[in-house]
Write a protein that binds this DNA or RNA. Sequence first.
DNA 1: ACCGTTTGTGTAATCGTGTGCACAATGTAT
DNA 2: ATACATTGTGCACACGATTACACAAACGGT
Lengths: 332, 332
Amino acid sequence: MSGMSRRRITSKELAKLAGVSSATISRAFSPDSRIGSATRDRILAVAREHGYQPNAIARSLNNQRSRLVALVVNAIGNPCEAEEQQLLVHRLQARQLLPIILCCADHSDRLQLMRLASTYQVDHVVVFSDMVSMQDAVDIFHTTKPIIVSFEPLDNENVSSIRIDGAEAADEIIDKIVRDGKKRFAYLSGTNSSWIDKLRRKWFADALAKRGLAFEAHAFGDYSYDSGFKEAVLLLHRDKVDAIICGNDVMAIGARDAARRVLGKNTPDDIAIVGQDGIAMAAWDCNDLTTLSLNHVAFIDAVVELIERHDAEIEGPHSITLTCTARWGSTA
Amino acid sequence: MSGMSRRRITSKELAKLAGVSSATISRAFSPDSRIGSATRDRILAVAREHGYQPNAIARSLNNQRSRLVALVVNAIGNPCEAEEQQLLVHRLQARQLLPIILCCADHSDRLQLMRLASTYQVDHVVVFSDMVSMQDAVDIFHTTKPIIVSFEPLDNENVSSIRIDGAEAADEIIDKIVRDGKKRFAYLSGTNSSWIDKLRRKWFADALAKRGLAFEAHAFGDYSYDSGFKEAVLLLHRDKVDAIICGNDVMAIGARDAARRVLGKNTPDDIAIVGQDGIAMAAWDCNDLTTLSLNHVAFIDAVVELIERHDAEIEGPHSITLTCTARWGSTA
DNA sequence: ACCGTTTGTGTAATCGTGTGCACAATGTAT
DNA sequence: ATACATTGTGCACACGATTACACAAACGGT
């Protein structure tokens, strides 16, 4: 690393330094190329000396393959998705793929943001967010070739999806709560109308129906602690419910705090509170939440599997189904 | 959006469709270009019809400007940094810059990862992680032109830095704890030896020294809840301390839980616990942590300010200093 | 009618790599 | 010794946009 040169050295310049043509430089950096091993070693040595690395932008232009992956997420800090994001980023990095984050929360024009990313010719798109319509995503990215991985199943050859089934686990949880004597159930949604929210609510609604019960109240938060806290106060005080199923774990923690602090009610004796997602924080001693948990590793394995199938150009849209499990804590 | 064509349409093809040259297409998409407004309108109409958008990869190659920003972070889920990450991503997106995430935690070869990102000719690099040596970052990115924004001040023309000063706030916090009668202090580090960890510890050590005290124990965690929990048990039981200053808020919550659960001690009467960062979760009702807080918005404002200076090609390395404040909860 | 300026467009080079094709050099089989 | 397969390298073009330069048309002022 001799050069403190400001500008990055180019393939052609290095060629001159090594006394070869720029084509040979390129071959030195392509593992399966016809090139003399002596030449390659010499070139790599000179390259190292001058800090040369092939320009990925130029390579992408030529290859028609950027090795960039767009991750469409609601928010970065939000623990609900953060663990999956973290896992996925690691897996991508291990495959030499670089993630570009598209963050939807509070952003006025998500579509424009997605269009911007699509101009970078990303190879794949993974949609975690339930705030974008899958049809929009397809319209924007269909011109480039990526397969979109998403929760929401969509009948389109460019979309692979991961389906989540939590019906059985929801049934287990409802069963326990009902046997504990709770009678008045409320559901606290995270968004006012997203696909995933409706699906999750249905699992619990079905379990209740099976026992001749139904949700007596339905509130709407925004996946945040504060909204969980605030809505729980209303549900408990105004609607007199004794069990709250929350759209995610963070709201559940907020609801638990509200019950304890504002109304002096404790879980699981006075009321039952259930979260969803199974984030690490839910298992912390101070939370100890009962939650409908998704196996994050299995989820990301599935995403990577779909990406690999796409890379291998295996035809057709693919779909993988995962089942949730109940994780028991002291809140229900 | 008529075309369900798989392949993205190119500038030259659109030129043929609109009956102009590809140069004119380009001008239609550059705001300040000499082009007839009639021609531009016609081109934009045809472009919209065929879903054309200029290829950002090709544009970057020509421009020598990728509009990509590398964010080097420890982890994505980690709340310590997540709020800043979230804010920064939003600000970047508003400026039409796309963030590439480089995640260092658990990754064997951070250097290789950074080298990979540098081949994408990122315009800027922001280092949040305290796990990478700033000198390594400079060596890897100096060939491309970006300025690096980092906590760690480094005397290099390519590095701008943001300095954090928490001495005064640490003094306030120690003052209160000492007046409350606590005598035996411990520090719980988040890493075994990072630059930022040493700095933070010094603020508190100085405040203690001013009062004729010193840390009686020094433990090492990994910024996680579990490590906070585990180390706190040892500190309280073996070392009999009655005040623990933690390297971040998450470990502080773990320590508080350990005190309560394992040893039956409560804050702030039996022991004092202090966090650092001022994450949102610290203010939740169930946590209510006393913490040395950084103003996240101000921090990100500073990062964006440095990036803007770099874009405007204002010479020289820059540095901005921010001061922390004490945020009072019921744990100290 | 003439000249200078402004405006709009096309031509061609450029950004840095990858790769098909041609060709020389070397090795191998008869 | 001849025919043929293999290996290593250079030339030139492609990838998809931007932009300096040239030039034609239109325009305004005398």
